[in-house]
Every structure is written in structure tokens, then in C-alpha cells.
Write a protein that binds this DNA or RNA. Structure first.
Length: 189
DNA sequence: CAGTGGATGCTCT
DNA sequence: GAGCATCCACTGT
């Protein structure tokens, strides 16, 4: 049977419920993508979150309804993709950090200029480059083209750990990964 | 394997 | 002007 599409209702819950359920789900962008193997949760009262301190500038979409894409530029170079969660005003989102590449491998290799499958989507910036996601896709709905999201068909073993690359709230264990996956951006300890 | 530094552009809890 | 939710190339174990 076909996996169910992820709906806006799926995202309209606590980020701490949604984030682990995204491990094993499938993310396609214009038909290119794969299985989500690593994510991180952020929310408004989290000093490490872009939504910390309230709606303003680039974070506006994080305070809108659940089920939309929050895309931001990282270190002036890379794009990073988040899924907005919870209700209007909550400022919550899940950062998509790594995929196991499954569909459109040739396209991903061309965009990433590497043939190393393990490095195609291992990291939020690499993943957006491989899928062709940019700031032009800020605010797009996740339940309509060019996005296609499918629920996982089995419950995988999940590992958690500290989030990567942040300087605030560094001890919060809000990074989730697929246990044993070689496609994560960094090993889980 | 770990650690370091540069690239680069936007926001400023 | 500082500080990034990063990546890559390079160095040294």
C-alpha cells in the first residue's frame, strides 16, 4: 500500500511530537529527495531558535500556521529548510538536517558536484543544494507541489542528542536521528 | 580521526 | 561591527 501523505494536521502539533515522527518519512522536492534521517526541533522560548523573541523579519512564517516551509540563509552561503509546526503564534519548526538519498540521485550528484552518496544530503545546507531548495521557496505549503511528503511506513529506532552548530541552549537533546544511519551529518554519541 | 580558518550575506535575542 | 541552526580545504595526530 502507498504511504500516506503528511497533511497540515500532522504538523499542527508540538515540535517534540512531530520531529521524531519525521525520522523515516520521505521528502521529495520536484521529485528529488529521500528518507529523512536527521532533524532538530526549535521553538519560540528556545534561545537557539530564530523565533526567539517574537515574530520579526525572516522568522515571520514560523509564527504562521503549521505545514509551511521556513527557509533561511546560513552563514551567507547555504540554504536551510524547516517545517513549521504547532499553531499560529507558536514560532516552532523542525530543521531538516539530513536525508538518505533515494530518488533523483543523478540530479543530486550534479547539483552537489560529488559522487559520494553519503555526502549528497548529509547536512542542512547540502540537503537544500541537492534538492534545489532556495529562499525562493520560503513560505511554500508542504502539502502541495513542489513538495511531496510521505509518512513513514514503520516505526524506526530513534536516537537523540545535542543540536549541532549552536551556541545557546546547547545541552537540550532536541536532535533526532535514525539509529545506525550512515547518512547523518555527524554521528550520535 | 580532530581542529582551524575562510567564504559570504543577512540580522541584530 | 558582531554573530551566526554551514561547508570545505587543509593541517596534524
Amino acid at each position: 500500500m502507498k504511504p500516506a501523505r503528511l497533511t497540515r494536521e500532522f504538523f499542527d502539533r508540538s515540535v517534540f511530537a512531530v520531529a521524531p515522527e519525521l525520522i523515516g518519512a520521505t521528502l521529495l522536492f520536484r521529485g528529488v529527495g529521500g528518507e529523512i534521517v536527521e532533524v532538530e526541533a526549535y521553538h519560540e522560548t528556545d534561545p537557539a531558535a530564530h523565533s526567539y523573541g517574537g515574530p520579526r523579519g525572516r522568522n515571520i512564517v514560523m509564527f504562521g500556521p503549521a505545514g509551511y516551509a521556513y527557509v533561511y540563509r546560513s552563514y551567507g552561503i547555504h540554504w536551510c529548510l524547516n517545517f513549521v509546526c504547532e499553531g499560529v503564534g507558536s514560532g516552532a519548526a523542525v530543521l531538516i538536517r539530513a536525508l538518505k538519498p533515494v530518488t533523483g540521485l543523478h540530479t543530486m550528484r550534479r547539483r552537489r558536484r560529488t559522487t559520494d552518496e553519503r555526502l549528497l544530503c548529509a547536512g542542512p545546507g547540502r540537503l537544500c543544494q541537492a534538492l534545489g531548495i532556495t529562499g525562493a521557496h520560503y513560505g511554500l505549503a508542504l502539502d502541495a507541489p513542489p513538495f511531496e511528503l510521505f509518512a513513514r511506513t514503520a516505526t524506526p529506532a530513534i536516537v537523540t542528542g545535542r543540536r549541532i552548530g549552536i551556541t545557546k541552549a546547547v545541552d537540550e537533546p532536541w536532535r533526532y536521528g535514525l539509529a545506525g544511519s550512515r547518512f547523518v551529518s555527524k554521528p550520535f554519541r
